[in-house]
Design a protein around this nucleic acid. Structure first.
Length: 232
DNA sequence: GTTCTAGAAC
DNA sequence: GTTCTAGAAC
């Protein structure tokens, strides 16, 4: 029994170390002796090991955009994928191959790239069979959860089981959603993109219909209301 | 970004 | 009692 426990311990240790090797924190971890490392609760070690890695959820787009099965369009500058959790009948993301962490990193030299992303977004809408019946918007979230700059191309029906809460709704229907054209304009005039202070507060605003501006008390009520605008 | 669920709101 | 939201997740 003692031996079994020892083998289990050893295995857990190797496992933890193997995870750490893939990260920059390897040296820090190695400074601990093997015995000391065993004293650390497994949970803590996992927490230590799973943060700031390529496997972290916020890095998911980097993985998805490289996956040919996810790509619905690509050229030498950008790739388009379907949003994994679409918030409307049509919801794509346009991503540049070039790694740009966020809007904050954008400079004047990125203007042409953003214009191209906009062009590709327009193409996606054009080729969509529903483009005649549905309105589309193209823009960026002021404070995105996912790393790597991505342009949302989303139909305005918001008819999707993935749209579940106030944050989802307000991120696409308030000024939290920054129109692509406005972002490009800002970059051209200021040489950078500034996000208005208090943008995060916009997510807490009451639920308001984007078509008739009626206020709805709950998400289910809002969804029911949207049917009156977007019956198939 | 999602999932899960405690407890608020009804 | 049920519906719904909102915050933690190590």
């Amino acid at each position: 029994e003692k031996l079994l426990r020892m083998i289990k311990c050893r295995f857990a240790g190797l496992l933890a170390r193997r995870i750490i090797i893939n990260q920059s924190s390897y040296l820090t971890y190695r400074q601990l002796s093997w015995v000391e490392a065993q004293k650390r609760p497994l949970k803590t070690r996992n927490a230590h090991g799973s943060k700031n890695t390529a496997g972290h959820w916020s890095q998911g787009l980097k993985t998805s955009m490289q996956d040919p099965k996810m790509q619905v369009y690509k050229d030498d500058k950008v790739v388009v994928i379907k949003d994994k959790y679409p918030k409307a009948r049509h919801h794509w993301l346009v991503l540049p191959w070039q790694s740009i962490t966020s809007l904050k990193a954008l400079r004047a030299e990125h203007c042409d790239l953003l214009k191209h992303m906009q062009q590709v977004a327009d193409q996606m809408v054009e080729q969509c069979p529903d483009s005649t019946s549905l309105r589309f918007r193209t823009g960026y979230h002021a404070i995105p959860s996912m790393s790597h700059v991505h342009l949302h191309v989303i139909s305005q029906d918001f008819d999707s089981p993935c749209l579940k809460n106030k944050k989802h709704w307000n991120s696409f229907t308030t000024n939290y959603f920054m129109e692509s054209h406005d972002v490009i304009q800002m970059l051209e005039t200021d040489g950078k993109v500034t996000v208005k202070e208090g943008a995060s507060e916009l997510l807490k605003l009451p639920l308001c219909c984007h078509v008739c501006h009626r206020e709805l008390p709950t998400i289910p009520a809002l969804k029911e209301h949207l049917k009156s605008h977007f019956s198939r």
